[in-house]
């Protein structure tokens, strides 16, 4: 009786132990899988970030060792280029909004014959190679508008090239925006303008902010079209990086300017997502 009881107890023990062994194997396998997955993600992250890290590292290399001194140029002789880039970007964004908002509203809300064709034409700039765009603009500016090499011409080039990037997100947002909000506002006593500013624009926030972001990233960093249409007085930061590299080779100060541009773009994108992605969008139908 006693031995039989002991054997039973042992068997119970081994049965109890077996799943524990099994789970430890699973856990180990899972840990290896986790490592592989994370490693894979980090590998790609590294590959994406590597060019920037290298440029950044290069910008710190001076004859006297590692130093931030090349960045003095960024706020010195390169300051005007950066400021010009900001200026043309902001003006382009404003113009894009002025063009795209009414256009999107008309396209979504009114019955326009040949809407599909119209949209395709409006979005033509998206499929036009930058070099083709550049030469077309040079020809048009020289022989038709006579604004070659002017700041107006430069900003015009950016607007023509990037307004579809503003138009499309707004069209999408407006299409998704039920008309009932507009009607509700009207019935509550709001006129068309009040409805636009208090209801429709805030609700279009996601689309508009996406458009602003895309315009910013493209215009601020634009180089190829700029190369065609910018005059001698209108050297944007991107163009300056190119000019310096071509004439003086790769200097730490040029790398510093490039790194600064990268950081500005990065910060703007992050700030945009933080601002529009949290407080502003809270409660809208998109989140």
């Amino acid at each position: 009786m006693v031995t039989g009881g002991k054997a039973l107890a042992e068997r119970r023990d081994s049965v109890a132990r077996r799943p524990r062994l099994w789970t430890s194997v699973v856990r180990q396998r899972r840990r290896i899988l986790d490592l592989v997955q994370h490693g894979y993600i980090w590998l790609w992250m590294l590959i994406f970030v590597l060019p920037f890290l290298t440029t950044f590292a290069y910008s710190l290399r001076t004859p006297d060792g590692i130093s931030l001194s090349p960045y003095q140029h960024v706020f010195g002789s390169f300051k005007d280029n950066l400021l010009l880039s900001f200026e043309v970007t902001v003006i382009s964004i404003v113009l894009n909004l002025l063009v795209a908002l009414p256009a999107a509203y008309a396209i979504v809300r009114f019955p326009i014959p040949g809407k599909g064709l119209l949209l395709a034409i409006l979005n033509l700039a998206l499929y036009t190679p930058a070099a083709v765009m550049g030469i077309s603009l040079v020809i048009v500016y020289n022989f038709l508008f006579h604004i070659a090499q002017s700041l107006t011409g430069l900003i015009g080039a950016y607007v023509v090239g990037t307004y579809p990037l503003m138009l499309i997100p707004i069209i999408v947002a407006l299409r998704d925006l039920p008309q009932v909000y507009e009607e509700a506002a009207r019935c509550l006593g709001a006129n068309r303008l009040q409805t636009l500013f208090r209801v429709e624009l805030p609700l279009l926030g996601p689309g508009i902010s996406a458009g602003i972001l895309l315009t910013f990233v493209i215009v601020f960093n634009e180089f190829l079209v700029t190369l065609f249409v910018a005059g001698p007085g209108n050297t944007t930061a991107a163009l300056r990086v190119f000019n310096l590299t071509r004439t003086a080779g790769i200097q730490p100060s040029t790398a510093a300017l490039a790194s600064t541009m990268q950081i500005v773009s990065f910060v703007v994108v992050i700030a945009f997502f933080r601002f529009f992605g949290s407080r502003y969008l809270k409660g809208t139908y998109l989140i």
Binding site: P178, V180, Y181, E183, A184, A185, V199, P202, L203, G205, G283, T284, Y285
Partner: peptide, 9 residues
Amino acid sequence: FQSHALFPH
């Protein structure tokens, strides 16, 4: 309205 149409923002 049928869909309450409260302003989501």
